[in-house]
Amino acid sequence: MTTSQIDPALLDLARRGLTGERRAIARLITFVENRSPAAPALMHELTPHTGRAHVIGITGAPGSGKSTLTNELIKEYRRQDKTVGVVAVDPTSTLTGGAVLGDRIRMLENYQDAGVFIRSMATRGQLGGLAAMTNDVVRVLDACGKDIIIVETVGVGQDEVDVAKAAHTTILVEVPGMGDDIQAIKAGVLEIADLLVINKADREGVEKLDLYLKAMLNLAPRKPWRVPILKTIAAQGAGIPELTRKIDEHLAFLKSSGEYEKRERARLRDELLSRVREEISRRILRRELQAGGLAELVNQLENRQLDLNEAALQLLAQTRL
């Protein structure tokens, strides 16, 4: 696809986004988030301009203070004269498909600052998954010149781990007294966190949680990057400069150790493969839904004439992929 083939209006939209125009950025995100037919052309235009931002993932249980922490990080980074993009993810109701997106409520102080762009996103349960959608939205913000991009996630499930993988630096937020020790063992995110933050550190139980997290980290296989544990009281802004220093340190470590390129390659490989998976299932579904072959196979599954493997192989054979 060359630039000349792209609709001039879309090209113009992409160019305005690249100059940082907020309305254009908002619209670009809408296209990408909805997997609009125009999205591939837009991503083609934007991709050469990506790869400059430092992507920070923030995850943790609901109520741990992720949004408030994000708000404090925005303020600190603005003090450092860096532009900030935020993608705040909230869950879609599986029953109705609707969602309440309320993270923005904690980030209202920054509304008059052209250097900050905040976008709320629902998980939706799209084909290709939340991670694919989030990565594309991050790319838009990256291309449109944001120095720091913070992805704030819901805090539960495998999607979280995937989204966190897309970040250069992943922060897990914990709060004292939020549950027994076993919760931290169960959480897959603990394994991929680059920084642990004990937020609401003025509460009872900080030392216990700190001790516990240290013990968990000591049990994990030794890695060159020692995961630090930081204490913040986000609602009062306490501990935030220290946190951004550690985030910077982590980025410096990634770059000096060669880990940055390694992660980038691994991530792109994962993304490519999942995009291919998405495309394959889309084509199969489209063809089969039109031809009616899918319904017939489901019938045979229902009658126990076929097992799942046989049906899947037949479907693949029929579509000649």
Partner: peptide
Amino acid sequence: RGLRDAGMEVIYTGLHQTPEMIVEAALQED
């Protein structure tokens, strides 16, 4: 809550909003 249950994605920004805040949020959230 009701519009969420009607299948919409609803952004709620809380009390005491200035017109500037409202329009900026609407713009960024498209």
